[in-house]
């Protein structure tokens, strides 16, 4: 009984997050960061928060992100109540965490779930760049690792959407160790034949890039996403010169051999369905018209 209520509550929260929408402030109209043209918020939300004029992909929250690829009504959140403690007793961290939880409606910087994509059951997760910049905390690493392990045990395909500023400074070395933890879990998953599709979204940097985000069997990214290990500012300071236009963009990574494809948000769900079928998941496994 209580689990039904919990599920209903989760759905409600997910719907709330969906309605309140993603990263963009609630103005009726705003200038697109891509083309600078004024775009109505309503027009944006009708376009999955992709600018109808220039195709700029606005960052979106984790619940909304998953709702764009999952079959309706199949979202079942995992470990929603698993949150970061304050392992280093870092001044001010606890209060900031509580604020972020209230404001964003997720317990941590990642939402993990089971769901179906085109009828195929999958383990899915999405980082939320609004929550401490999607930075790697012990709880985020744990939720991702549990998802990988569950996918391995249940023989499910794994799909992760990354969006991260890097390490969670307030958790210090424990943040760093999550890189090893998640990479190790993925290595086990991979050796058992699991399929992992990694989707990089704006921005994916630091410790997340240098661990689970880069280890996909299939590497996808959204157009224009910033993807890298070191941030552009740090690199400019180190080498003492301006970086070329388009450096660390998804297009740049594709050109340098680190992505299989750049997939616009509108085409992502069909692309995932096709990839799952090509790996033998679902009815279309054997042949696909």
């Amino acid at each position: 009984m209580s689990s039904i209520l919990a599920q209903r509550r989760q759905k409600l929260l997910a719907m709330k997050a969906l309605r309140s929408g993603p990263h963009v402030p609630v103005y009726a109209q705003e200038d697109c960061p891509g083309c600078g043209q004024p775009v109505e918020r309503r027009a944006l939300s009708g376009h999955r928060f992709v600018c109808p004029l220039c195709g700029y992909h606005h960052p979106v929250g984790a619940y909304y992100r998953l709702s764009l690829v999952l079959d309706k009504g199949t979202f079942r959140e995992l470990d929603a109540n698993l949150v970061s403690g304050d392992p280093l007793n870092f001044p001010g961290y606890q209060a900031k965490l509580e604020g972020a939880r209230r404001r964003i409606g997720t317990g941590e910087g990642v939402v993990t779930a089971l769901g179906r994509i085109g009828g195929v059951k999958a383990a899915v997760g999405a980082l939320d760049s609004r929550f401490f910049m999607g930075s790697m905390s012990a709880a985020l690493g744990e939720k991702v690792t549990r998802l990988i392990e569950l996918a391995g045990k249940s023989r499910l395909p794994l799909i992760l959407f990354s969006a991260s500023g890097g390490a969670r400074m307030q958790e210090g070395i424990l943040s760093l160790m999550q890189m090893a933890k998640t990479a190790a879990a993925l290595e086990q998953f991979s050796r058992r034949g699991g399929l992992y599709i990694s989707v990089l979204t704006h921005p994916t940097t630091g410790g997340v890039t240098a661990s689970f985000a880069s280890l996909g069997d299939i590497m996808l990214a959204e157009p224009g996403a910033l993807i890298g290990f070191a941030g552009p500012r740090v690199i400019e300071q180190t080498i003492g010169e301006k970086l070329p236009e388009g450096f660390q963009s998804a297009e740049y990574l594709l050109e340098h051999g680190f992505l299989d494809a750049i997939v616009p948000r509108q085409e992502l769900r069909p692309a995932l369905i096709r990839l799952l079928a090509l790996h033998g998941y679902g009815k279309g496994g054997e042949s696909h018209g």
Binding site: A210, F212, A213, I227, F229, A230, V234, I239, F247, F258
Partner: peptide
């Protein structure tokens, strides 16, 4: 943290 290091996949190298 350099331009060529990024071009050749610093993040991927560490992850692997």
């Amino acid at each position: 943290p350099g331009l060529e290091a990024e071009a050749r996949g610093q993040g991927e190298a560490i992850a692997r």
